[in-house]
Amino acid sequence: MGEKTGKRELNKAKKRAEIVAIASRWFCEHGYGATSMSAIADELGGSKTTLWSHFSSKEELFVAVVDWQVECFAQDLERTLDINHFSTSTLRKLCLRLIQQLIDSSASPLYRLVVSEGERFPEIVEAYFRLGPARLRSRIHRFFATHFEEPDASELSRLVITALVGFRSEVLVNPIRPKTSDREHFVDMLIARLRLDGIEPAGH
């Protein structure tokens, strides 16, 4: 009985992942407004009841897409932060990896979608911010908090996220893609401007 239940749950999880992958492509390629549950169900194949048994609305499905992409993003971030204590070299590595993720991964089409359709569908803005930027800032904050006192850790995390997202926004409207050296120069300039040597570490 337990083996059958386990297999059933595994198949259910696989089907859910398949739905989320299809929906992710539809949202990014066609936009939130132009994507329908019926279109996703048609591509999924089989009974439309299958889709509705996993997700009761398009908004719920969008939240699952964002959560899935953010989880992939977060796993990569954790590998970058394999040393969970602050150092300037780890911060540099972190910033360069975040820029690569923000520009080159599936995060970029999703960001475009939220910016372009967020005014018409404010619910996707709330979901995207709660699951994406807010969680990312919280993780960066914990990284800074291993070395700096509050409110310095909070302010540093806000400045770093704002700078990197701003860099991504500039890249998206610039027809010339930044070279690796451009990214490195930006990150080195950012770290220098943070003036970390002038901030008292925690415990002092």
Rank of each mutant, 00 (worst) to 15 (best):
171 V>N: 04
170 E>C: 02
152 D>G: 05
202 A>N: 12
130 R>Y: 06
37 M>E: 14
150 E>K: 07
11 N>S: 08
4 K>R: 07
9 E>T: 03
157 S>H: 06
110 L>Q: 04
138 S>T: 13
180 T>C: 09
123 E>T: 08
177 R>A: 15
39 A>H: 07
6 G>A: 15
145 A>H: 11
190 L>M: 06
97 R>W: 00
109 P>H: 02
189 M>E: 04
188 D>P: 03
168 R>M: 15
30 H>M: 11
142 R>G: 01
100 Q>R: 12
162 T>M: 08
130 R>D: 12
169 S>C: 12
178 P>W: 10
83 I>S: 09
159 L>H: 04
104 D>K: 03
120 R>Y: 06
148 F>Y: 15
61 L>Q: 14
137 R>W: 03
84 N>A: 15
33 G>L: 12
167 F>H: 15
117 E>L: 10
36 S>L: 02
88 T>E: 13
15 K>W: 04
151 P>H: 09
63 V>N: 12
31 G>H: 12
150 E>W: 00
118 G>C: 05
58 K>N: 05
89 S>Y: 03
73 F>L: 10
103 I>A: 02
181 S>Q: 14
161 I>N: 04
1 M>K: 08
47 S>C: 10
134 A>M: 13
147 H>G: 08
131 L>K: 08
98 L>Y: 03
78 E>V: 02
151 P>V: 12
91 L>F: 01
62 F>D: 06
73 F>D: 09
166 G>W: 11
72 C>K: 12
15 K>T: 13
71 E>M: 13
114 V>W: 02
139 R>F: 01
136 L>R: 03
152 D>L: 00
202 A>S: 14
172 L>E: 15
131 L>Y: 06
55 F>E: 08
50 T>Q: 03
155 E>S: 08
48 K>T: 06
164 L>D: 02
42 D>K: 13
157 S>D: 05
191 I>G: 00
98 L>F: 01
194 L>I: 00
201 P>E: 14
26 W>H: 07
67 D>E: 15
118 G>W: 01
16 R>Q: 13
144 F>M: 02
149 E>T: 15
126 E>Y: 06
204 H>W: 05
198 G>Y: 05
85 H>L: 02
179 K>W: 03
151 P>M: 07
36 S>P: 00
90 T>H: 07
70 V>R: 02
41 A>D: 12
15 K>D: 06
149 E>C: 13
179 K>T: 15
6 G>S: 15
180 T>W: 09
90 T>E: 10
117 E>C: 01
185 H>F: 09
97 R>I: 00
155 E>T: 12
59 E>I: 02
6 G>F: 09
28 C>G: 04
153 A>T: 06
150 E>N: 12
4 K>L: 13
67 D>N: 11
63 V>R: 14
31 G>R: 08
107 A>Y: 14
36 S>V: 10
